[in-house]
Write a protein that binds this DNA or RNA. Structure first.
Lengths: 206, 206
DNA sequence: ATAATTTACTTAACAGTGTTAATTTAATTG
DNA sequence: CAATTAAATTAACACTGTTAAGTAAATTAT
């Protein structure tokens, strides 16, 4: 059935086209500038056509958030070359901050906006794989540090949430503009890395 | 001029009425359920009347965010009884988390939503006093801890941002539902306090 | 006391949003 | 070539924030 195969391929292509337009629209104009009607306009279809390929706006935002996670994992590939787990942990934190600063729109979607989680709630039997992979990686690395007695012992979950919380907190305070009213412009980003630095230092076993 | 005085008082009263309706609407239904038209309906005026008392929606949200800060400062009054600065720092962190968990809508406005910062940008000669007071208090406390050699030395700004970042990160991951897909429901909140606990412990000088 | 003016508020409208139902157009199958 | 299926569209609903224009009442001036 070559004909139905080609049709499916075409359907997949239009879906891809919608997604690509969405990526462009979202990464350039963020959540506020993002709308179903604008996507339709970009691909030169009527707004309702988009609904033949995606259940709703949240499904598109969920897909975009997954693209963000893949981008994030990509940016973490260079960690594999670092042997020392504590050093790797430090670098992982730096990468996290760097990713957030360089991809604020994706970061927003991955960790700040309600949309992707709302989609997960609506659709059954679906997990938050992106977040799960990230946290699992972090916990594995912390365990390694503890095993090699590089950092002080403690509950893995608490340590992981603490470290994640801190870098996430820094990035999201920055993205949501809670820093620029309190800290001199040119000192914000250096301070963020210094904070991470300080934390890695204090948790290091002497 | 008793007559114009009374008129001004009436104006102030309606402004207050709008604000009270806004508080109720926002704290019960959050940002998504909040609209100018709904406020108008609540106070039984036309939607455009609201614009005679507030420049736009962002001004109302800014005012609400300030109410949130006052509520937060209120909840921190019990800190004054604690003599030991490190203990006070710990308790301040706990209060921060507790406030976020108990007042997620206010927290959203104070630290997560763009609206209040957008208002500050639009209006000239206005500072983010709420955030400024909070960070100043935190930095003062950290300085006290360092002076009394209770915690390891380091750059005050970096330490303050690190601690704030961490508690903010934890609370905002919780509010934006990034925890419940990764951690067992009943373990989330205890883990948050454990994370704080762990951080206070590692930064303590031996 | 009556006319002019200011104040307080409303109606109507614009330009947008997500989404659904009904309808048309095009392609495929019988 | 007709019947059916698939794909896309138009129209509509119920919202949103916000502005311009108009109305009614209260206040001030003559």
């Amino acid at each position: 059935m070559g004909i139905s195969e080609r049709k499916e391929k075409q359907k997949a292509e239009l879906k891809q086209l919608i997604l690509e337009a969405s990526v462009k629209l979202f990464s350039e104009h963020g959540y506020d500038g993002f709308s179903m009607r604008k996507i339709a306009e970009m691909i030169e279809y009527s707004p309702t056509t988009v609904y033949l390929y995606f259940k709703d706006k949240n499904e598109i935002l969920f897909d975009l958030h997954e693209i963000g996670f893949r981008k994030f994992e990509e940016s973490n590939r260079d960690l594999l070359t670092i042997k020392n787990p504590l050093l790797r942990l430090h670098k992982m934190g730096e990468n996290y901050i760097k990713f957030g600063l360089e991809n604020p729109e994706y970061y927003d979607l991955m960790f700040l906006l309600p949309a992707p989680m709302e989609f997960i709630d609506q659709v059954n039997n679906i997990e938050w794989n992106g977040g799960d992979r990230a946290l699992t990686a972090l916990k594995g690395l912390i365990q390694e540090c503890i095993d090699k007695k590089l950092i002080k012992e403690g509950d893995i979950n608490a340590i992981a949430m603490g470290i994640w919380g801190m870098v996430h907190g820094l990035v999201s305070l920055y993205i949501r503009r809670r820093c620029d009213k309190l800290i001199k412009e040119e000192e914000i980003i250096p301070t963020m890395y210094q904070s991470l630095n300080w934390m890695i230092n204090v948790l290091e076993v002497d």
